[in-house]
Computed example of a mutant assay.
Amino acid sequence: MTTLQAQQQALLQAITAQAPPADTRWLRASPGGAAPRLGIYRHAYRARLAAALADNHTVLQRALGDDAFAELAAAYVAACPSTTPSIRWFGDRLADYMCSREDLVPHPALVDLARMDWALRAAFDASDAAELGLGALANVAPQQFAGLRFTAHPSVRLLVMDWTIEPAWRTLREHDPASGADEPQLPEPEAAPHTLLVWRRQLDTQWRSLSALEAALLQAAFDGEPFGALCERAAAALDGDAEQAAATCAGALQQWLQDGLFCAVQPALG
Protein backbone atom coordinates (compact mmCIF):
# COMPACT_ATOMS: atom_id res chain seq x y z
CA MET A 1 0.00 0.00 0.00
CA THR A 2 1.33 3.43 -0.94
CA THR A 3 1.61 6.30 1.50
CA LEU A 4 -1.22 8.08 -0.32
CA GLN A 5 -3.51 5.04 -0.08
CA ALA A 6 -2.78 4.71 3.62
CA GLN A 7 -3.58 8.38 4.17
CA GLN A 8 -6.83 8.10 2.21
CA GLN A 9 -7.97 5.06 4.19
CA ALA A 10 -7.06 6.73 7.47
CA LEU A 11 -9.05 9.82 6.52
CA LEU A 12 -12.05 7.73 5.45
CA GLN A 13 -11.98 5.87 8.76
CA ALA A 14 -11.67 9.10 10.70
CA ILE A 15 -14.70 10.58 8.90
CA THR A 16 -16.99 7.55 9.05
CA ALA A 17 -16.09 6.08 12.46
CA GLN A 18 -18.53 6.56 15.33
CA ALA A 19 -15.98 8.56 17.34
CA PRO A 20 -13.23 10.83 16.03
CA PRO A 21 -9.69 9.49 16.31
CA ALA A 22 -7.87 10.28 19.52
CA ASP A 23 -4.63 10.95 17.62
CA THR A 24 -4.84 13.47 14.78
CA ARG A 25 -1.14 14.19 14.49
CA TRP A 26 -1.10 12.56 11.05
CA LEU A 27 -3.32 15.40 9.75
CA ARG A 28 -1.66 18.53 8.44
CA ALA A 29 -1.42 21.20 11.10
CA SER A 30 -3.37 24.43 10.76
CA PRO A 31 -3.86 27.57 12.89
CA GLY A 32 -7.20 26.25 14.21
CA GLY A 33 -5.95 22.73 14.77
CA ALA A 34 -6.73 19.52 12.92
CA ALA A 35 -9.68 18.35 15.05
CA PRO A 36 -12.11 21.19 14.09
CA ARG A 37 -11.41 20.66 10.41
CA LEU A 38 -11.98 16.95 10.73
CA GLY A 39 -15.21 17.67 12.59
CA ILE A 40 -16.50 19.61 9.58
CA TYR A 41 -16.01 16.59 7.33
CA ARG A 42 -17.53 14.23 9.88
CA HIS A 43 -20.62 16.42 10.21
CA ALA A 44 -20.98 16.90 6.45
CA TYR A 45 -20.76 13.15 5.82
CA ARG A 46 -23.62 12.38 8.22
CA ALA A 47 -25.70 15.36 7.13
CA ARG A 48 -25.49 14.29 3.49
CA LEU A 49 -26.57 10.75 4.33
CA ALA A 50 -29.48 12.07 6.40
CA ALA A 51 -30.53 14.30 3.50
CA ALA A 52 -30.44 11.33 1.12
CA LEU A 53 -32.54 9.34 3.57
CA ALA A 54 -35.15 12.11 3.67
CA ASP A 55 -35.15 12.37 -0.13
CA ASN A 56 -35.74 8.63 -0.45
CA HIS A 57 -38.48 8.68 2.22
CA THR A 58 -40.29 11.95 1.61
CA VAL A 59 -43.65 10.90 3.02
CA LEU A 60 -42.15 9.26 6.09
CA GLN A 61 -40.20 12.45 6.80
CA ARG A 62 -43.39 14.50 6.60
CA ALA A 63 -45.26 12.06 8.83
CA LEU A 64 -42.60 12.10 11.54
CA GLY A 65 -41.72 15.78 11.34
CA ASP A 66 -38.26 17.33 11.06
CA ASP A 67 -37.00 16.69 14.59
CA ALA A 68 -38.19 13.10 14.93
CA PHE A 69 -36.96 12.19 11.47
CA ALA A 70 -33.57 13.78 12.18
CA GLU A 71 -33.26 11.63 15.31
CA LEU A 72 -34.20 8.49 13.37
CA ALA A 73 -31.80 9.38 10.56
CA ALA A 74 -28.89 9.94 12.94
CA ALA A 75 -29.48 6.57 14.58
CA TYR A 76 -29.80 4.82 11.23
CA VAL A 77 -26.62 6.39 9.84
CA ALA A 78 -24.74 5.15 12.90
CA ALA A 79 -26.23 1.65 12.82
CA CYS A 80 -26.35 1.05 9.05
CA PRO A 81 -23.46 2.83 7.30
CA SER A 82 -23.63 3.32 3.55
CA THR A 83 -22.26 0.30 1.67
CA THR A 84 -22.77 1.33 -1.97
CA PRO A 85 -20.93 3.89 -4.11
CA SER A 86 -24.22 5.64 -4.99
CA ILE A 87 -25.95 7.58 -2.24
CA ARG A 88 -29.21 6.96 -4.07
CA TRP A 89 -29.50 3.50 -2.48
CA PHE A 90 -28.91 4.63 1.08
CA GLY A 91 -31.93 3.66 3.15
CA ASP A 92 -32.73 0.20 1.83
CA ARG A 93 -32.70 -1.19 5.38
CA LEU A 94 -34.59 1.65 7.06
CA ALA A 95 -37.95 -0.14 7.42
CA ASP A 96 -36.32 -3.18 9.01
CA TYR A 97 -34.28 -0.93 11.29
CA MET A 98 -37.42 0.90 12.39
CA CYS A 99 -38.90 -2.43 13.51
CA SER A 100 -36.03 -2.74 16.00
CA ARG A 101 -36.29 0.84 17.32
CA GLU A 102 -39.75 1.30 18.74
CA ASP A 103 -38.39 4.20 20.79
CA LEU A 104 -37.92 6.15 17.55
CA VAL A 105 -41.17 5.07 15.89
CA PRO A 106 -44.27 6.51 17.57
CA HIS A 107 -46.66 4.31 15.57
CA PRO A 108 -45.96 0.92 13.94
CA ALA A 109 -47.79 1.99 10.77
CA LEU A 110 -44.85 4.29 10.02
CA VAL A 111 -42.84 1.21 9.07
CA ASP A 112 -45.26 0.59 6.21
CA LEU A 113 -44.91 4.23 5.14
CA ALA A 114 -41.17 3.65 4.88
CA ARG A 115 -41.71 0.47 2.85
CA MET A 116 -44.06 2.25 0.46
CA ASP A 117 -41.71 5.22 0.03
CA TRP A 118 -38.79 2.94 -0.78
CA ALA A 119 -40.74 0.69 -3.15
CA LEU A 120 -42.03 3.63 -5.19
CA ARG A 121 -38.56 5.14 -5.48
CA ALA A 122 -37.11 1.75 -6.44
CA ALA A 123 -39.84 1.28 -9.06
CA PHE A 124 -39.04 4.68 -10.56
CA ASP A 125 -35.35 3.80 -10.86
CA ALA A 126 -35.88 0.24 -12.09
CA SER A 127 -34.58 -0.93 -15.46
CA ASP A 128 -36.58 -0.21 -18.58
CA ALA A 129 -38.37 -3.00 -20.43
CA ALA A 130 -41.05 -3.10 -23.06
CA GLU A 131 -44.50 -3.73 -21.61
CA LEU A 132 -46.41 -6.79 -22.73
CA GLY A 133 -49.74 -5.58 -24.06
CA LEU A 134 -53.02 -7.33 -24.78
CA GLY A 135 -52.02 -7.66 -28.40
CA ALA A 136 -49.21 -10.05 -27.48
CA LEU A 137 -51.80 -12.77 -26.79
CA ALA A 138 -53.95 -12.14 -29.84
CA ASN A 139 -52.60 -15.17 -31.72
CA VAL A 140 -52.51 -17.58 -28.78
CA ALA A 141 -54.86 -20.50 -29.27
CA PRO A 142 -57.31 -21.11 -26.39
CA GLN A 143 -55.79 -24.51 -25.62
CA GLN A 144 -52.35 -22.92 -25.20
CA PHE A 145 -53.32 -20.44 -22.47
CA ALA A 146 -52.95 -22.94 -19.65
CA GLY A 147 -49.20 -23.27 -20.32
CA LEU A 148 -48.36 -19.58 -20.62
CA ARG A 149 -45.80 -18.18 -18.19
CA PHE A 150 -45.30 -14.45 -17.67
CA THR A 151 -42.23 -12.42 -16.70
CA ALA A 152 -42.71 -9.46 -14.36
CA HIS A 153 -41.70 -5.99 -15.50
CA PRO A 154 -38.50 -4.92 -13.64
CA SER A 155 -40.33 -2.10 -11.87
CA VAL A 156 -43.02 -4.25 -10.25
CA ARG A 157 -43.00 -4.71 -6.47
CA LEU A 158 -45.41 -6.58 -4.20
CA LEU A 159 -45.37 -5.33 -0.61
CA VAL A 160 -46.92 -7.17 2.31
CA MET A 161 -48.39 -4.41 4.47
CA ASP A 162 -49.68 -4.60 8.03
CA TRP A 163 -51.57 -1.29 8.12
CA THR A 164 -53.91 0.64 5.81
CA ILE A 165 -51.51 3.53 5.35
CA GLU A 166 -52.36 4.31 1.71
CA PRO A 167 -54.87 7.14 2.46
CA ALA A 168 -52.41 8.82 4.83
CA TRP A 169 -49.57 8.34 2.34
CA ARG A 170 -51.59 10.03 -0.42
CA THR A 171 -52.54 12.94 1.83
CA LEU A 172 -48.95 13.53 2.95
CA ARG A 173 -47.58 13.18 -0.59
CA GLU A 174 -49.93 15.84 -1.87
CA HIS A 175 -49.17 18.20 1.02
CA ASP A 176 -46.40 20.74 0.39
CA PRO A 177 -44.87 21.88 3.70
CA ALA A 178 -43.26 24.85 1.96
CA SER A 179 -46.67 26.19 0.90
CA GLY A 180 -47.48 27.42 4.39
CA ALA A 181 -50.74 25.46 4.42
CA ASP A 182 -51.91 23.91 7.66
CA GLU A 183 -50.80 20.38 8.43
CA PRO A 184 -53.33 17.94 6.94
CA GLN A 185 -55.58 15.79 9.05
CA LEU A 186 -54.45 12.23 8.49
CA PRO A 187 -56.82 9.25 8.34
CA GLU A 188 -56.14 6.89 11.21
CA PRO A 189 -54.49 3.72 9.85
CA GLU A 190 -56.08 0.41 10.73
CA ALA A 191 -54.31 -2.88 11.35
CA ALA A 192 -55.19 -4.90 8.25
CA PRO A 193 -52.67 -7.20 6.54
CA HIS A 194 -52.84 -6.81 2.78
CA THR A 195 -50.67 -6.58 -0.32
CA LEU A 196 -49.72 -3.39 -2.15
CA LEU A 197 -48.77 -3.48 -5.83
CA VAL A 198 -46.19 -0.89 -6.95
CA TRP A 199 -44.95 -0.38 -10.50
CA ARG A 200 -43.98 2.24 -13.11
CA ARG A 201 -45.66 3.26 -16.34
CA GLN A 202 -43.09 5.16 -18.39
CA LEU A 203 -42.09 7.97 -15.95
CA ASP A 204 -45.05 7.66 -13.57
CA THR A 205 -45.07 5.38 -10.55
CA GLN A 206 -48.34 3.60 -9.80
CA TRP A 207 -49.75 1.70 -6.86
CA ARG A 208 -52.93 -0.03 -5.79
CA SER A 209 -54.03 -2.35 -3.03
CA LEU A 210 -54.86 -5.93 -3.99
CA SER A 211 -57.42 -8.40 -2.75
CA ALA A 212 -55.97 -11.48 -1.10
CA LEU A 213 -56.87 -13.63 -4.12
CA GLU A 214 -55.40 -11.26 -6.71
CA ALA A 215 -52.22 -10.90 -4.64
CA ALA A 216 -51.82 -14.69 -4.44
CA LEU A 217 -52.42 -15.13 -8.16
CA LEU A 218 -50.06 -12.34 -9.16
CA GLN A 219 -47.30 -13.61 -6.88
CA ALA A 220 -47.73 -17.08 -8.36
CA ALA A 221 -47.45 -15.62 -11.86
CA PHE A 222 -44.26 -13.79 -10.87
CA ASP A 223 -42.93 -17.06 -9.43
CA GLY A 224 -43.26 -18.66 -12.86
CA GLU A 225 -46.42 -20.69 -12.43
CA PRO A 226 -48.34 -21.21 -15.71
CA PHE A 227 -51.73 -19.67 -16.25
CA GLY A 228 -53.43 -23.04 -15.76
CA ALA A 229 -51.94 -23.32 -12.27
CA LEU A 230 -53.30 -19.86 -11.48
CA CYS A 231 -56.77 -21.04 -12.46
CA GLU A 232 -56.40 -24.04 -10.16
CA ARG A 233 -55.38 -21.74 -7.31
CA ALA A 234 -58.41 -19.56 -7.95
CA ALA A 235 -60.71 -22.57 -8.03
CA ALA A 236 -59.39 -23.75 -4.67
CA ALA A 237 -60.04 -20.30 -3.21
CA LEU A 238 -63.54 -20.21 -4.73
CA ASP A 239 -64.75 -23.53 -3.30
CA GLY A 240 -63.98 -25.47 -6.45
CA ASP A 241 -65.99 -23.26 -8.82
CA ALA A 242 -63.90 -23.80 -11.96
CA GLU A 243 -66.06 -21.55 -14.14
CA GLN A 244 -65.84 -18.64 -11.72
CA ALA A 245 -62.12 -19.27 -11.31
CA ALA A 246 -61.52 -19.12 -15.06
CA ALA A 247 -63.46 -15.87 -15.31
CA THR A 248 -61.57 -14.41 -12.33
CA CYS A 249 -58.18 -15.29 -13.79
CA ALA A 250 -59.11 -14.04 -17.25
CA GLY A 251 -60.25 -10.71 -15.81
CA ALA A 252 -57.12 -10.45 -13.66
CA LEU A 253 -54.85 -11.20 -16.61
CA GLN A 254 -56.56 -8.54 -18.70
CA GLN A 255 -56.07 -6.00 -15.90
CA TRP A 256 -52.40 -6.96 -15.42
CA LEU A 257 -51.72 -6.55 -19.13
CA GLN A 258 -53.51 -3.19 -19.19
CA ASP A 259 -51.39 -2.09 -16.23
CA GLY A 260 -48.17 -3.16 -17.97
CA LEU A 261 -47.05 -5.56 -15.22
CA PHE A 262 -45.36 -8.05 -17.59
CA CYS A 263 -42.54 -7.70 -20.08
CA ALA A 264 -42.50 -11.18 -21.65
CA VAL A 265 -44.53 -14.35 -22.07
CA GLN A 266 -43.28 -17.87 -22.64
CA PRO A 267 -45.41 -20.52 -24.35
CA ALA A 268 -46.02 -23.95 -22.90
CA LEU A 269 -43.02 -26.26 -22.84
CA GLY A 270 -43.04 -29.25 -25.15
Rank of each mutant, 00 (worst) to 15 (best):
G180W: 06
L137V: 07
P193S: 04
V156I: 13
L158G: 00
M161A: 05
A138W: 03
D182L: 02
A138K: 03
A191R: 13
P177R: 13
G147M: 00
P184A: 01
A168R: 12
H153Y: 06
A130E: 12
P187V: 05
A146E: 10
A136Q: 07
L148S: 11
E131C: 14
W169T: 03
G133C: 14
L159F: 02
P142L: 05
D128N: 11
G147D: 02
A181C: 11
S179L: 07
F150C: 02
E166Q: 14
G180L: 09
D128Q: 05
V140P: 04
R149G: 00
E190W: 02
V140T: 14
H153L: 12
A146S: 15
N139P: 00
V156D: 01
A178Q: 13
L132N: 01
A130T: 15
Q144F: 03
D125S: 13
G147S: 01
T164C: 05
A168L: 15
F124C: 06
S155L: 07
E131D: 05
P177Y: 04
A146G: 09
P189W: 04
A146V: 10
T171M: 11
S127P: 00
P193A: 12
L132P: 00
E174F: 08
D128T: 15
A191C: 09
S127I: 01
G135V: 07
N139M: 11
P167S: 13
G135T: 04
V140S: 02
P184M: 03
P142H: 08
V156C: 06
G133N: 09
E166R: 15
L172N: 11
I165R: 04
R170Q: 09
A168D: 13
D162K: 05
G147P: 00
E166G: 03
V160P: 09
P142E: 05
I165D: 01
G147H: 04
L159V: 01
L148C: 11
S155G: 07
D128W: 05
G180Q: 06
R157E: 06
H153T: 10
A152Q: 11
E183I: 11
D176G: 02
A192C: 12
A192E: 09
I165Q: 06
P167T: 08
S179M: 12
E174T: 14
E166K: 13
P142N: 10
E166W: 05
A130C: 08
A192N: 13
L196Y: 05
P167W: 11
A192S: 15
P189S: 09
L159R: 08
L134Y: 00
L132G: 01
T171W: 02
A126Y: 09
M161I: 01
S127N: 10
P142T: 10
A138N: 03
G147R: 02
F150S: 00
T195Q: 07
Q144H: 12
L158T: 07
L134A: 05
L137C: 07
P167H: 03
E188Y: 01
D182I: 01
N139E: 15
Q185D: 15
R170Y: 04
E183N: 10
R173Q: 14
E174H: 08
I165F: 08
T171D: 04
N139I: 02
L137T: 03
A178S: 14
A152T: 07
A178M: 15
G133M: 04
D162F: 03
A136D: 05
L132I: 08
A146K: 13
L186V: 11
A141L: 10
A191V: 02
G135M: 06
D182K: 03
Q143I: 13
R157L: 08
L186C: 07
A191K: 07
L148W: 00
F145G: 04
P187E: 12
